[in-house]
Design a protein around this nucleic acid. Structure first.
Lengths: 134, 134, 134, 134
DNA sequence: GTGGTCTAGACCACT
DNA sequence: GTGGTCTAGACCACG
């Protein structure tokens, strides 16, 4: 991972998201070990307290487990990981549709624009008049 | 408009977005009048300064024009409005693709999920294993 | 004259300036008649009170005289007009030099840039490093 | 810097200009730290909110970067700084020429007057009849 | 300690 | 009536 905090969101939140995405995408498989607070703090050049806070949040999400003596691991509950992944994806799809609708693109146009950007077919409707679908 | 600020973002930012979307979607046509600072503050039940700040931002975006004594209007530069709309839509498409990629869905899967949610064809890939496309 | 108030300065001030410039540049020669308040208000599509205020200011500058029965005229004091013109020009020159100095251009560079823009010789120093001449 | 607000322009605008000129002239080099809101407010004897507003504007110009918890710095984008400097200088040159033209001085006379004030050659045309070059 | 947000309320200029 | 500016002071998140 590259730890870049260009965002203006809190650093701890960016760490949470990057680790969460690593887990949900399968990059950090269930049960795999996570770096220690101090190691991660050194690597990302942030205050250990900040890393600590990130891990606390990941634990409260259930994605990370703390073992008293042997550091932290990704949860072994593959079900949970997949459930979170599904829910997150669903949320993002819905947010995208809502965003595009508020710009005056209906669902079909949103799909079309996305397909186009994804390098598939799709005729551009970017320049079309808003449909005001609200 | 209904002024609900459920979000945890700053109130002024939510006002900016709601008005901006109104303009970009064509609900507030070019040249149309906008409510006065005081009127909007009453309606949304916030401090006039908060509304003022929102308008300040809209003006710096070029979407709103301020007339010294006769209130504010939507810009009459339809070109600009369409350009902002295009750019905003483009940005949201790209953010969506990036978001889905970080969840382990490639572009084709993202399109598929979107199409499904949009109530069209598409077989669900929500439960599939992450492809880890990074 | 074309009465355009694109500026965000007060309208009365813009009227003052446009008439003042007309007088100083010789477009409105000494002693020549000025339009009536009502005529000017109609022409410029502004409130007569606004025009009135502009004329009051011009009178306090001494550039305009009011005749009880025959409207207003440009002052016949050619000396005064030339003095104001000289003073105004001097002020603008000094402001320009100060402005350029605060941007890190010394007087010679300012002259060079101006000559260049005026379509004469002059090698561009626009891209040069600031001299920090303060 | 000495914080004097003799001008009748808004205080926040004067703060913006003074800092902007500091950046454009090279006095505040790229990446250098800027005073905190509270410190500057104390020094300039204005309300912190006024300073905040000035910084807000400088940020929207791209000249200043805000770090969530560690204050503000001048942008490190030297390109941008030089571009703004160039554009600002160009604008001031053009405004000066327009100003002088509206006083009845053509471009050559404007150059001449400037050169004279800059302490170089140039025979005064200040007393000459307006050329009315419009 | 840093910046960010919001409120309450005053005063001003303009038309 | 409109918008604009400024102050005073409170509260929050972050590190």
């Amino acid at each position: 991972m590259e730890w870049a905090f260009a965002d203006d969101r809190p650093i701890y939140a960016q760490i949470v998201e990057q680790i969460e995405m690593g887990i949900l995408s399968g990059e950090c498989p269930a049960g795999s070990a996570l770096p220690s607070v101090r190691a991660l703090a050194l690597e990302a050049e942030v205050n250990p307290n900040t890393v600590q806070r990130a891990f606390l949040e990941l634990e409260s999400l259930g994605l990370v487990r703390t073992h008293r003596t042997s550091g932290r691991t990704v949860t072994e509950d593959g079900e949970l990981v997949m459930a979170v992944r599904r829910r997150t994806a669903q949320g993002r799809v819905e947010r995208f549709l809502a965003d595009m609708r508020s710009l005056g693109f209906d669902a079909a146009q949103a799909v079309s624009l996305l397909a186009e950007a994804a390098g598939q077919q799709g005729c551009s409707v970017l320049g079309s008049e808003p449909k005001d679908v609200r």
